[in-house]
Design a protein around this nucleic acid. Structure first.
Lengths: 155, 155
DNA sequence: CGCAAATAAGAGTATATACACGTGTATCGT
DNA sequence: ACGATACACGTGTATATACTCTTATTTGCG
């Protein structure tokens, strides 16, 4: 509903053949993130935060490293991504038995936030699934798997 | 070749049915960006910078707003993305006739950087095209178009 | 002409992402 | 038991992204 800081937004450019696959993928991710963020706006969560919160709820108590694995994210990125959730009181960290680790848990407020956001997410997800279609989503999953496999080869 | 700050990286998790489309798309974008970044590493450019630099070369002299349009990026994001290129001496800004605008140009060093990076990009692009296949890439473009259309509806 | 509305951009703030480096803790081999 | 190694995490730095607010300019209207 807002967007683009005062200046007007015009129509998207015509698709250029031979475009960089990576750039197209990044653009799509940006656009779709805005759609989901907008859908979740009234919950106070972004799609990244919502999915992270849900992931924690599924595994809690869970270490930061394991969370990073779950999301295929760098460990340090996961640390940073936890910070806003923690500041908002939605998650909590406590030292684990292995005192190198930090066990992350969802607080009651965090569970409430999930409950508040879930129907909003479901609605957006339903809409996107219909809009894109199962074939397209299947291709997306396959593409994601291949991209992750290629990225992993480098590590 | 590096990656994940000391801690080990394990295998990717099993695909979960009913996964968030947006999260999958973001993951794929992260992974593929790493593949392209790695391919371009010796050029000193990241894929984002390379594609921006090429875009400027195609349109120069060009305003920041027009560049933002081209990449379907927020205007302020484009301003920030120009900063590293400018600091590296690859692009230059000069006031336009309309003195509200800033006309961006590629410097000789910038053109040299493009020339250096182009074969690396082509190689990565070829590889990805083969790996993913034309059908998958067609679906990706269609998905991108739909996502952008949905995002635009909100603006 | 003069001023209000529109436009282009910068600065401030915040999140998302990753790499290099450093620190504390566990483990394992001898 | 001890020391080398592996491991989990935090911090510093940098890029990518977007929103809000502010400023400088242009344009359009009366």
């Amino acid at each position: 509903m807002k967007r683009s800081t005062t200046n007007e937004v015009r129509a998207a450019p015509a698709p250029v053949a031979g475009e960089c696959v990576c750039v197209t993928l990044r653009r799509a991710a940006r656009a779709l993130s805005q759609v989901y963020d907008e859908a979740l706006a009234s919950s106070g969560l972004r799609i990244t935060q919502f999915s992270l919160l849900r992931g924690i709820a599924r595994l809690e108590p869970v270490s930061i490293g394991d969370l990073a694995q779950m999301q295929v994210l760098d460990r340090t990125t996961m640390s940073r991504n936890l910070a806003p959730l923690e500041r908002a009181g939605l998650v909590r960290q406590a030292p684990g038995d292995d005192r190198r680790t930090s066990q992350v848990q969802v607080t009651p407020a965090g569970h409430a936030a999930i409950a508040r956001a879930l129907p909003l997410w479901r609605k957006a997800q339903r809409r996107i699934r219909q809009e894109f279609g199962d074939a397209s989503l299947g291709q997306l999953r396959a593409l994601n798997a291949k991209a992750e496999a290629l990225a992993e080869q480098m590590r």
